[in-house]
Amino acid sequence: MQFSRRQRPRGNGDESILPLTNVVFLLLIFFMLAGRLASPEAFDIQPPVSTSEAQARRDGLEIQLSAGGDIAIDGQAVDLDALEERVGEQIEANPALALRLKADGAGDATRVVAVMQALRDAGGEKLRLITIAPE
């Protein structure tokens, strides 16, 4: 007695690549959205070069100071008086909050000192100045 095997028709291979393309498109969408969630820079800032090669910590509230003296908190422009008020509110909510000042290396040093004084008056005790690593 002879059994006949039923041959399965072979596909063109598109069925095996379809899940892969779905995964690739999902990853593409994920990274497009994740890239937009990063906090934008309010100004084009070139921090001064550091003599230390230690990596800066990224936690805490970032205050940006442009070369022209403009101030921003997490990408939103503020003036010096509003800076003290907004940082004070944040510190009141979280007393252990670390502050990171990203100042342009070409900016006025007296403006940097004024911003640091405003942060101190707001209650900031932990302040890090952001610099770039030496080449």
Rank of each mutant, 00 (worst) to 15 (best):
I73Q: 08
R57L: 15
V113T: 13
T110I: 07
F25E: 09
R86W: 05
L99V: 03
S16F: 09
Q64F: 06
E62L: 15
A77S: 10
K102M: 06
G123I: 09
P9G: 13
A118G: 01
F43N: 01
G13T: 07
F25I: 14
A38S: 01
S66N: 07
R57H: 12
I130Q: 06
L80E: 09
A67E: 04
Q7A: 10
I130M: 12
Q90R: 08
F31S: 06
E125Q: 13
Q55S: 10
G60R: 04
R6Q: 07
E135K: 15
K102Q: 06
S52F: 04
D108R: 01
G60F: 08
V23Y: 05
V112K: 03
E135T: 12
A54S: 06
L26S: 11
A82F: 08
P9W: 11
P47V: 02
G13W: 09
Q64A: 14
L83D: 00
A114V: 10
A106W: 00
Q64H: 07
D79L: 11
L83F: 11
F30C: 08
L80Q: 07
A54P: 02
N22W: 11
N94V: 13
D44F: 06
D104I: 00
L27A: 14
R86V: 02
G124H: 00
E135L: 15
D108N: 13
N22R: 14
A103R: 01
L18T: 12
T21A: 12
R5Y: 06
L129H: 10
N12S: 14
V23N: 09
R5F: 15
I29F: 05
L83R: 01
Q76Y: 07
E15Q: 05
I132E: 15
E135M: 14
K102H: 02
R100Q: 12
I130R: 02
F43V: 01
T110E: 04
R58V: 15
M1V: 08
R111C: 04
E15G: 12
